[in-house]
Simulated assay, not measured.
Amino acid sequence: MGGALAMVCALLVPSGQALAADSGKAARRHDVVSWGASADRLGEGVAGRGYRLVVHTSVGGDNLRIRLSNAFGDRAVTFGSAYAGLQKSGAELVSGSNKRLTFDGAGSVTVPAGHTVYSDPLPGRLAADSDLVISVHSPDAAGPATGHSMAMATSYVTQGDHTAEESAANWADRTGSWHYLDAVTVRTGASIGAMVALGDSITDGWQSSTDLNRRWPDYLARRLRTSTATTVEGVANEGISGNKVLADGAGQSALNRLDRDVLSHPGVRTVFLFEGINDIKSHTGVTAQDMIDGYREIIERSHDAGLCVVGATVGPFKGWPEWDPAGEAVRQEVNAFIRDSGEFDAVADFDRALRSPYDPERMLPFLDNGDHVHPNDKGMQAMADTVDLASLDCSST
C-alpha cells in the first residue's frame, strides 16, 4: 500500500460494518482461496524466529483464514502467535490493522509433521488487491522448514516474538521467501470461484519485477477483478521454479503435489495447467507421449474433483543453452495435443502469445527477459491478456 493511506479500501473493517446486505444469507456464502504459494523444503527451522510475510490477495471477502504448513517437517512445529495486518510500507503496518489470529480459539497452535492447519475466521472484511501481512513466531522450530523459496516479494525476519507490533523497528532483516504460510482464504458469495495456476518458474514469476506483483497470474487477477465475463475472481499461484510434470526435483512434481497445492484449496473451480518446459529441456528422455500421459492424469484427477482444466501451450525456448531440435519436436507435439485433442476444457495459447513471428521457435525479443525462456513484465502481461476469461467458468467433463 506504500504511503497511499487515502486508499484505505483495503482495511480490515469490523464485520458489523461490512456486508450488511448479506445478513441472513450465510448459506449462500463459501470460502475461496485468495492467495496461495506452493510448499516445499526451505532450509532448517530456527527456534525463536519470527516472520513478517507480505502477500498480495486476489478476491476480497470477510472471515479471513490462513493456512500454515509443516508439509515437509520431520517433527511438530509450534506457532506461539500469528497476526494479520495490512502493509503501510516495508515491514510497517497500517495503524490499527494488525489482528491476532486464533486456532480453535487458542492463540497458539502446534502443527504435526506432514500436516497443515487453518486459523479460525477473522471477523472483518478484506478488500481485493490488498497487501496483506501475516506475522508468525515459532518458539521451537527445528529440522526441515516448509515454505516457498522464490517469492519475488520482500518479507521480513526477526528474533523473538514481535508479531503484535505494527512498527517496523524490530523487523530489520529481509527475506525473499515465504516461510510456513501457504494459503489465505476469505468468505464470499457462493457464485464466486477461484482458479489455481499450476506451473513452474514462469508462473512463479522469475524475472518479473520484485515487489510489483507482475507475474502473469497477478495480471490475470487484475483482469478478473473488472470482468463481467466470469465469476472466477480468486487466483492462487502454485508455481515452483524448476518444477516438472513428471519427476520430482525442484519441488515435488505436478502430479505428486496436485492434491495439496491445488485440490485442497476451497472454492476452486478451475485448474490452469502451464507446465512442461522443464521436462522437455532436461534431456532425460521424456517423450511427447510421456508428457501427454501426465497431462491426462492431471485432467482426470481434476475432473474427478469436479474441476475443469485449462491447458496452456508450452512457450518457445530457442536460445536457451539446452534447446535442440529434438526437444523442440517434443514441444511442438505436446502443444498440438494441448490445442487440438479436446481433452482440456479450454486452451490458453501462451506459445502463440510469446513467440516471434519471424522465428516461431524463439520468444519475441520485446517480451524476453534475455534468457530466452522467461518472459519479462511485458511478456507476463501478454500471457495474461491472451486468456479467454469466460473459459475459466467452463464445466468439467
Rank of each mutant, 00 (worst) to 15 (best):
D385L: 08
G327V: 03
D368T: 01
E275I: 11
A20G: 13
G48W: 03
D248H: 03
A236W: 05
Q207I: 09
A390K: 12
G205L: 04
S138Q: 03
R41C: 05
T210M: 10
A20Q: 15
S341P: 13
Q332L: 13
D345A: 08
R29D: 11
A183C: 06
V347P: 14
R100H: 07
G85V: 02
D140N: 14
D248L: 05
S15T: 11
D204E: 14
G160S: 07
N237S: 11
P266A: 05
A169K: 11
A27K: 14
S119R: 01
R65T: 03
R339N: 03
R260C: 04
H283K: 13
V133T: 08
G160Q: 03
V271E: 08
L220S: 08
D129E: 13
L354F: 07
R362W: 09
L126F: 08
T146A: 02
E92D: 09
Y219M: 06
N335K: 07
N237V: 02
A194L: 05
D345E: 12
H56W: 13
H265A: 08
R260N: 08
L307K: 14
A250P: 01
T228C: 01
W171A: 10
R28M: 13
Q207Y: 10
E233R: 15
P360A: 12
S89C: 10
A382D: 03
D371F: 07
K25H: 14
S167C: 02
G205C: 06
V387E: 02
D40E: 15
L132W: 09
H162G: 01
L64P: 12
S282T: 11
D345G: 08
A164S: 14
Q207M: 12
Q252H: 11
V184W: 09
V117C: 08
F103G: 10
A128H: 10
F72L: 10
A106R: 15
Q87C: 06
G199Y: 01
Q17W: 10
A194H: 02
A76E: 12
G45T: 11
P321L: 12
D259K: 11
D304A: 15
G176Y: 00
H265T: 01
I66K: 02
M195T: 15
A127V: 06
Y51N: 14
W171R: 05
D388G: 01
V286F: 08
L181G: 05
